[in-house]
Structure formats: C-alpha cells, structure tokens
Computed example of a mutant assay.
Amino acid sequence: MTYTIIDTTLSDPLARPLLDGLQVEYATRYAEFRPNSAALASEELVRYPAELFAPPEGAFIVIVRDGETVGGGAFKRYDATTAELKRIWTHAGERRQGLARRVVQELEARALRQGYRRVYLTTGFRQPEAAGLYVSAGYERLFDPSIPPEVHFRLPFGKDLLEPGRTDSLSDLVQLEPLGQR
C-alpha cells in the first residue's frame, strides 16, 4: 500500500473524513461522562480558527491511500518555542499499522523546520491508545500518573525536539493540578 502525505488546510475536502472521524470518536468515547458529548465534540473541532493550523506558525497534514484520507493531524503555536499537536487521527480500519506514529513524526519534523524546539499536546483520559503512542514516541507525561486519569480528564504530554528525553526543558509545561472537565 502506498500512502501519500499532503500538507493542506482544514477547508480542503481531504480534511473532512478526519474531522468527521474525530467528531464521532470524541462524542462516543466521552458519552457517559458528558451528556451533550456530540455538541461538545463539535464545539471542540471549531474551537480554533483554521488559520492557526497553517504555516508559518502551524501545519495540517493528511495521509491519503487510494484517494481516501486515512489519517492526519495538525499543530499550532503554543508559545514562541513550542508547537501544540492537535487533531491526530487514524481511520478505524487503518489503526495499529503505524500511521499515527507517522503523523506525529511528520508533524514533529515540520515543527522543527518552522523553528519550534519542543512539542506539547493533550489527549483525553478515554484515549489510552493515544497516550500509549505518545509515551512510546518519547513524550513525557506532564501530569501525575498516580492520580486516576479520569480526574485529570485531559492528559498533557511534552517532548523536547532538540534533545529527546530531556525533561528540564519542559518544566514550564508541567500541570500542577489535574486538567479537569471544562
């Protein structure tokens, strides 16, 4: 199978499967914790203006196979030296094949080229596969893992792109309190 990585925008029709897939994923995974999870998922997906995910401060990519979007993700500026990964997604039928890791690697490479030296992200407590991906890709947990993940609700992670494994450069990103529901 041949996969093509395309730098694009949120308004590109190639982005629609990613956004629709995230909408369903967020709504269904958190339905028992948020009675209005479908509406909240929709709100989350339009929370940030599309231009934040475009160069020079952001990026948005999709992975296409046989003309269909099967994965993708984005980043936006978090601060002057930090990119924030968002919207990492892989089609349900394409999971466990390394596509999400490829998306993360591609976004990290773009972030470095755009002058960022570290990456920040959050994932939800009902997304253990995502948390596992980030840990295996060298991201540091920026939360207290001894606290049950549902207390945190959102789980923050960080990575120094210039010196992977270095944690002191991430200290200002560490969450002192759980990121509860908002």
Rank of each mutant, 00 (worst) to 15 (best):
Asp79Leu: 01
Thr122Asn: 12
Ala50Thr: 06
Arg95Leu: 09
Pro164Phe: 01
Ala80Asn: 12
Ser42Lys: 01
Gly132Asp: 11
Leu52Ala: 14
Lys86Cys: 02
Leu19Cys: 12
Lys159Arg: 12
Gly158Asn: 07
Arg154Gln: 11
Ile147Asp: 00
Phe125Gly: 04
Gly158Leu: 03
Ser11Met: 12
Thr82Asn: 02
Arg126Gln: 11
Thr167Met: 09
Leu162Asn: 05
Gly67Met: 12
Pro55Ile: 07
Ala54Ser: 12
Ala137Val: 04
Glu177Gly: 12
Arg65Phe: 06
Thr90Ala: 13
Arg141Val: 02
Ala31Met: 10
Ala15His: 13
Ser11Pro: 03
Gly58Met: 07
Arg29Cys: 11
Arg65Tyr: 10
Val64Asp: 02
Phe143Thr: 02
Phe53Asn: 01
Thr9Asp: 05
Glu57Thr: 15
Gly67Cys: 12
Arg126Cys: 06
Arg96Ile: 03
Arg34Gly: 05
Ala109Ser: 15
Phe143Pro: 02
Glu177Ala: 15
Glu84Met: 03
Val119Gln: 07
Lys159Val: 08
Leu133Ile: 14
Leu176Cys: 10
Arg101Thr: 08
Gln175Ala: 15
Leu52Glu: 15
His91Tyr: 06
Leu161Asp: 00
Glu44Val: 06
Ala15Leu: 04
Gly115Trp: 00
Asp79Val: 02
Asp7Gly: 05
Glu108Gln: 09
Val46Thr: 13
Arg29Trp: 00
Gly132His: 03
His91Trp: 10
Leu161Ser: 04
Asp144Met: 00
Thr4His: 07
Tyr26Arg: 11
Ala92Arg: 09
Val104Gly: 03
Ala111Cys: 11
Leu85Met: 15
Gly115Gln: 05
Val46Met: 07
Val64Gly: 03
Tyr116Arg: 00
Arg95Thr: 08
Asn36Thr: 13
Pro49Lys: 07
Arg95Gly: 08
Leu40Arg: 13
Ala111Leu: 13
Leu22Val: 06
Gln114Ser: 08
Leu133Arg: 12
Arg126Phe: 00
Phe53Gln: 01
